[in-house]
């Protein structure tokens, strides 16, 4: 048996043998966690609204983001957020909480290597690809929008 067939057979065998995470449970956990975060956001929004009924939606949205980000960073600093994320998966990562955690955790982690080459250089170590993705997709969407607006 040549090396390539041996490897192919082995990889096939390993894939069959490797336990798969139950998709239904992960989906359910992500749903619960994501929904909880969104409900929290709604709750803060309602509270702010009750004090400032005239506040416009954009300003209100910014306040909710600030609150969720601050809470996430606090939880990250106290070492609790990774436990929530272990349960919630994408449910914690997709809302702005995931983004805040990825930056805060890097800042905490690389503080030991100094302000410039530690925090400065590595703060976006995990969040960087997300930003690049966001910029790249908004460029594509922008071009599509421009073409549509021509007609």
């Amino acid at each position: 048996m040549d090396k390539q067939t041996r490897n192919e057979k082995y990889i096939e065998y390993v894939e069959a043998k490797t336990p798969k995470a139950g998709w239904f449970t992960s989906l359910f956990h992500a749903f619960v966690m994501g929904a909880t975060i969104c409900c929290l956001g709604q709750m803060f929004s309602d509270i702010i609204r009750s004090f400032y009924p005239m506040m416009d939606l954009l300003t209100l949205g910014s306040w909710i983001n600030i609150i969720i980000i601050t809470l996430t960073i606090l939880l990250t600093a106290f070492g609790c957020f990774d436990r929530l994320a272990k349960y919630g998966g994408a449910g914690t990562f997709i809302p702005i909480s995931g983004f805040a955690n990825s930056i805060a955790s890097c800042a905490i982690e690389f503080k030991k290597e100094g302000l410039v080459f530690g925090i400065g250089a590595k703060m976006f170590y995990v969040a960087g690809p997300v930003l690049v993705n966001g910029v790249a997709y908004s460029l594509v969407v922008g071009i599509v929008y421009f073409i549509i607006s021509l007609f």
Partner: peptide, 9 residues
Amino acid sequence: YPLEFGNQR
């Protein structure tokens, strides 16, 4: 990843 980064293993 960083220790406090929330991800699933």
